[in-house]
Design a protein around this nucleic acid. Structure first.
Lengths: 193, 193
DNA sequence: CGCGGTTTGTACCGATCGGTACAGAGAGCG
DNA sequence: CGCTCTCTGTACCGATCGGTACAAACCGCG
């Protein structure tokens, strides 16, 4: 692996954190350079496309992480209940129990929306569809499974917004706890349906 | 009312829309000037504090709108069920059935967070507490009411994020529909609690 | 060592950022 | 009309924006 590729891989998590905290417009090249410890020359050598390519690389890395750690197990693991459980614990860990915002959600709300619409949509549809598949295999009817999957993906975003708005990360944990019984076919009945 | 005050009042909804679409950092003075039809001179005459004061005025206007249209009825209307129903329809209308993002949520996720933390938190606590009061009067136990209120406020934000991310405003309506039965004490039992 | 390509710090670019200064247009009033 | 005070378009400020150019430093390799 060339030095540039190494630097690129090492930089991506840091870039992600800066985009997460400041949004696309708010993350200036000066900030991105300082936090990664890379000068402008190095940054543009690793990401010739500039800031846009950095954001794309970050979004791709996030999608890859979710794909292997969450979506694929939801789709393929023999025991769907175990995969769903794993999704909840992985999600809680990824978002640091509410202490970390969702970069994709932040991009969706403001500046990056038009620029990265496709990747943003794919992140959410991927999650929703994989979860729906798992719920179907777990015993929910197809329509019910799709509905619950959408609800869960949506609720996770809501929990992150609220946790950040109230500066109360625990709000995210409470939201995950509310979700759990709704993902168990033997458990609570569908509320009002 | 002086001309400046009139201009200020007239400008606020437009400013709100620009902040909503671009976030705090993304909303440049040039953009704010063009959309309001006000030159820099007029803008700074109406908002001597500059961009920060514009955003504060917008947040104040939003809070006032929700306070009178939603929070106060939830707290004070004799029939809590009617107030809750009204909340749902007003919310759906305000967010244009998912076609409009929540400025407060967007600020919470990225740039405006530190700058406007207090107002952002107040928007959400105000909503949550007013709804909890209505739910209590409607017959839920205090703890249950508070929990459901937090869930609803969180879910609304999640629905808005998802609607925007998928470019599918209807996702917001589906979320509201899922919420409705959970706000009726005679209806569906609490799921898993 | 010298040679080649890769990597990087730095100077610089035009554009735009938020904000200020101010002259003159405009409106209210006697 | 003329005076006064409010308003506003425009020029301008220094800082910073994202991005480019390029020479020097660096590195593996012979």
């Amino acid at each position: 692996m060339s030095k540039a590729e190494t630097a690129r891989e090492a930089a991506i998590p840091v870039l992600a954190e800066v985009f997460r905290e400041h949004g696309y417009e708010g993350a200036s090249l000066a900030l991105l350079g300082n936090r990664t410890g890379l000068g402008k020359g190095s940054l543009y050598h690793a990401f010739p496309g500039g800031k846009a390519e950095m954001a794309e690389a970050v979004l791709d890395a996030i999608e890859a992480w979710f794909e292997t750690r969450i979506y694929a197990p939801l789709r393929d693991e023999p025991d769907p209940r175990a995969a769903i459980d794993r999704m909840l614990t992985e999600t809680d860990a990824y978002f640091r129990s509410g202490g970390r915002a969702c970069l994709v959600g932040a991009f969706a709300l403001t500046d990056g929306r038009d620029r990265f619409a496709l990747r943003i949509a794919r992140y959410f549809t991927g999650w929703r569809d994989a979860l729906a598949a798992a719920l179907t295999r777990a015993g929910f009817g197809p329509g019910d499974a799709a509905d619950r999957a959408e609800e869960v993906v949506s609720a996770i975003q809501g929990g992150l917004v609220l946790a950040r708005a109230l500066d109360d990360p625990a709000a995210f944990g409470r939201m995950l706890a509310r979700l759990r019984p709704r993902l168990d076919p033997s458990g609570g009945a569908a509320p009002g349906r």
